[in-house]
Design a protein around this nucleic acid. Sequence first.
DNA 1: TTCTAGGTAGAACGACCGTTACACTAGTCC
DNA 2: GGACTAGTGTAACGGTCGTTCTACCTAGAA
Lengths: 184, 184
Amino acid sequence: MAKPATPARERLLAAADELFYARGINATGIDAIVERAGVALATCYKHFGGKDKLVTAYLSQRDEQWRADWEAAIADADEPLLALFDALERWWTTTGHRRGCAHVDAAVELTDPDHPALAVVAEHKRHLLHRLTEIAAAEGFSAPGEIAADLLLIYEGTLSALLLNITPDPFTQARRLAAARTSR
Amino acid sequence: MAKPATPARERLLAAADELFYARGINATGIDAIVERAGVALATCYKHFGGKDKLVTAYLSQRDEQWRADWEAAIADADEPLLALFDALERWWTTTGHRRGCAHVDAAVELTDPDHPALAVVAEHKRHLLHRLTEIAAAEGFSAPGEIAADLLLIYEGTLSALLLNITPDPFTQARRLAAARTSR
DNA sequence: TTCTAGGTAGAACGACCGTTACACTAGTCC
DNA sequence: GGACTAGTGTAACGGTCGTTCTACCTAGAA
C-alpha cells in the first residue's frame, strides 16, 4: 500500500483484474481497462506509469487476495493441509471465469524474461510452497518439504484441469490424491 | 497429411515450432517465422492461408510427435501407466526450452474461444485421458477412468511445476505420486 | 516451345496499441 | 484569492503485425 488508494486507482485495478483475467494480458489494451474503469487514460498513466506496472499491480493484488482467502480456509479447516483445495473450490465456484490461475497465465503470456510482473508470479508460488511446508511441519510430518511440494504439484494439476476442462470433477480428485498423500 | 509435404512447408512448420514454443504464439510474428524458415512471406500464405491455420498446424504436429514419443515409451516401459512420465522426462531433458506444454500455453494465449487451434488442444488432452484409461483397463484396474484422470492431473501438475520452476525435482515427485496411486 | 506450379522479393494497406502531450475543470488547503 | 492536487478529454506519434498484391523467376511437363 505504498500509494494512496484513491477511488480512480481502485477502479482501475478492479477493471484490470476483470479484463486481464478474462481476456488475457496481451489481448487487453489499456484503452479497454480505462473505459471499463470510467477513468481518463492520463489518470491511468499517472497512477501506474505504464502497462507493465499495471500488470504487476494486478498480480500483486491477486496474490494478496488469494493469501487472505487461503488463510481463512486454513483457520476453518479440520485438516489445514487440505484447506488449499477448500479455498480453491470456493474461489472457483464463486467466480464465473474459467482461465485457471492468473499467475500461471501471466507466466505463459509474458514472454520477456525481464518483465517485472514475473517476479510477483515467482513470489506467489514460492509463498505457496513455503506456507505449505510450515503447515506440514506444524502438523508433525517428518518430511514437510516433500509433502508441501507434492501438494503444490496436485494443486497446479487441479488448476490446469480446471482451465482445460479435461476432467469431470477435479476437486474430488485433488482431495482424494491429497488425502492419500497426507494420511498416516 | 492432406497437403503435400514440400520442403518449404516443412521448413515453415519447423520454424513455427521453434518460435511459437520458445517466444509464445502472440509474441511471434509471421515475419519472424518466414525469416527463420528462409522462405518468402507469400509462400507461407499460399501453404497455410493465415496465422490461425499455421498455429493449428503447429499444434497438430506437436500432438502427433507427442503421441509417437509416448507410444514408444509405453512399449519400452515395465509399467505402461508410468510411461507418461518417462516420455515427459525424456522430452524435457532433450530439448532446451522451459515453457511447459505447448497446448496448455496455447489455451492460455488464445483468448478467442472460437480460435480453430483450440480444438486441437482439446483433442490432445482428450486423447491423453482416453489412452490412459485404455491402459489402466488393460492392466486390469477396476476403475480405469478414475486412475486415468488422477494420472492426468499429476501429469498436468508436473508440467506446471516445470514451467514455473517451483519444485526441485518434479519427475521424482510425479513418479512417486503416480506409483502410489497405481499400487495394489 | 509453351504452360504451369512453386517459389521469391518487396512494397503497401489497415488496424491496433502503448505512450505522450496539451488544455481544461473542480475541489482543497493555506 | 492563490496554489496545489487529482482528474478529464482528445489528439497525435511511432511502432508492430496480419494480410494482400504485383512482378518476377525457374524447372519440369506437354
